[in-house]
């Protein structure tokens, strides 16, 4: 097969896997609903219930608490979307469907890429729902369209990264019971970041940890885009590239492990 032929085939595999992932989500409420309702609910609870905290004098975010929380939900839902896809991958390996993919794909990385694309597409649907809810509840956007697109790209990379992370575990353990192992670290990273208030208002040891947490930079950058005041963009970009590179290796190792196990 020529190099171009291999690329075309790999793309075809990736798109097919992505199609299935999206198709299944939209034909099965048990998959789609949680991934939409959870972010929507967190958004409602945080933006609705905690907004007074923005009246603290040192709370210095200019676009309001709804925007402040929307940025968090954006990142959170992208990260959790990847984990939900990880559950599906684990199920495919546990129940044998993955063999169909392994047997058909000339280049098996295409399978993982397909899951990743599927997760991103699914997340964009979630985003559309949460974004509509945010607009309805009067979210202020001070950033330009360019800023919003940058936010979209940032969250998409988060989605891809968390999918590869979860895929790496799913392909190593190959059982749905691995769910908590995928979810817990992401959950902890997300909540050891400035979720409710800007970093300088976070108290105690969580503040110290949050300073080292890459998600802190990602959150600040995301909030900066909505406020039209890009913040720590370079740092976030470096964090994203570094994390993405790491999880690519991690997922590749997972794929090898799955290949060895048949």
């Amino acid at each position: 097969m020529t190099a171009a032929g291999t690329v075309a085939r790999t793309r075809s595999v990736a798109l097919s896997v992505a199609w299935r992932s999206v198709h299944n989500a939209f034909h099965n409420p048990a998959i789609l609903l949680p991934s939409v309702l959870f972010p929507l609910f967190f958004f409602m609870a945080f933006a609705g219930g905690l907004s007074s905290v923005q009246n603290v004098p040192e709370f210095d975010y200019r676009s309001g608490y709804t925007s402040f929380q929307f940025a968090f939900i954006c990142i959170q839902s992208a990260a959790f979307g990847g984990v939900f896809t990880g559950f599906a991958i684990a199920g495919d390996f546990e129940f044998g469907f993955a063999r169909r993919l392994l047997l058909a794909a000339p280049n098996r990385s295409g399978i993982v890429a397909g899951y990743m694309i599927g997760a991103m597409v699914r997340w964009m649907f979630v985003l559309a729902v949460v974004f509509s809810a945010a607009l309805i509840s009067g979210m202020r956007i001070d950033g330009s369209l360019g800023h919003l697109l940058a936010l979209l790209v940032l969250a998409l990379v988060v989605s891809a990264t968390s999918t590869l992370w979860a895929a790496g575990i799913a392909m190593r353990l190959r059982t749905m019971q691995a769910g908590p192992v995928m979810q817990m670290p992401i959950f902890i990273l997300l909540f050891l970041a400035p979720v409710y208030v800007p970093l300088h208002l976070v108290a105690g040891w969580v503040h110290d940890v949050a300073q080292l947490n890459p998600f802190t930079a990602l959150l600040e950058t995301a909030r900066g885009f909505i406020a039209g005041e890009p913040t720590k963009v370079a740092l976030s970009a470096v964090c994203l590239v570094a994390m993405f590179t790491l999880v690519v290796g991690w997922a590749r190792g997972g794929l090898h492990s799955a290949e060895r196990a048949g």
């Binding site: 595999v13 798109l15 097919s16 199609w19 299935r20 469907f97 063999r99 169909r100 058909a104």
Partner: peptide, 20 residues
Amino acid sequence: ALDPMLTGREHMRLQGGLQG
């Protein structure tokens, strides 16, 4: 190796894509 959520026709479509 089947996906319980897909129909027969959708399986063929998926396999067609996988096989290029």
